[in-house]
Every structure is written in C-alpha cells, then in structure tokens.
Amino acid sequence: MKAIQLTVNGGAYKVFCPEDITLLTLLREHLHLTGTKEGCAAGECGACTVIYNGKPINACMVLAMEADGAVIETIEGEAKDGVLSPLQQAFIDCHALQCGFCTPGMIMSARALLDENPTPTRDEIVHAMEGNLCRCTGYEPIIRAIEQIAGGAQ
C-alpha cells in the first residue's frame, strides 16, 4: 500500500491504495466515482476514458501509482450544480445514447477534443472518437451531437 495525491474534478484527494491497481479501479472502487465504466479493461473500447493531465486516455491503461500528482477529469465533473453540460444535453437531444454504457467515455473524448479545438470538422470529430466503441447507436447520432456543440455555444 502506498499513499498518492491527485486532483479529480477540481477536488484534491489523498488515497492509500495497493500498488498494483489501475487508475480505473482507483476511481471506481476507492473514490467511488463509478461514472467511468469498465468495458474491456484492455485499452480497446474507450468506456473508461478520462482526461489525464489534459489528454484523453483509457483509465484501465494507467496504474494508480502513476497518477500521483495527476490532474484528472471524469464524467462526474461534466454537469455543474446538477445541470447537465451543453455537451451532455446535446447527446440527449440527438439520441446519441441507448444503453448508455459507452456514453461517459464518449463524452470525455468529445470534451477533450472540444477543449483543444472548439470548432472541429466532422473528420476531426470522427478521428478523435476512434478509440470509443458503441454497440447501440451506429455512431452517427454521437457525431451529430458533437457537431451541434462544435457549431454553437458550449
């Protein structure tokens, strides 16, 4: 067991945890932030996407110990004061989710894209979302939801 400190959604955490767990396990089982989902746990599906020091990554592909000192954003930080972000609302408006399991990862990949490039083209959106799999929607509504935000105010 080792102590690490990290910032998650603006809050500072000090966690005492085993050395052999992933960041995903740390978020879900130690910080109880279960919005980040475990899909494949092998870096394939993107369900566990979080923003890690400004970059979108798979939380299953990072060891918790590596995150000592890291600044992390998860889906729990997206809504403010109980109000969905425009990006979350666009997903609902565009029917960009059905079962919802991939949605936290989709939103975090889209958030990372929009933070870096507020007006991405359709091609840039498709490229940025390549790491996130969805078995329900066929992707088109997800791309439309992000396009809607890219074309308007966030």
Binding site: G46, Y52, N58, M61, G131
Partner: peptide, 9 residues
C-alpha cells in the same frame, strides 16, 4: 497506431 487514447500513452 491505434487511436488518440492509446497514442497519448
């Protein structure tokens, strides 16, 4: 090489 999530690592 894979996708942006993995290229960031």
């Amino acid at each position: 090489l894979a996708n942006i999530l993995l290229r960031n690592r």
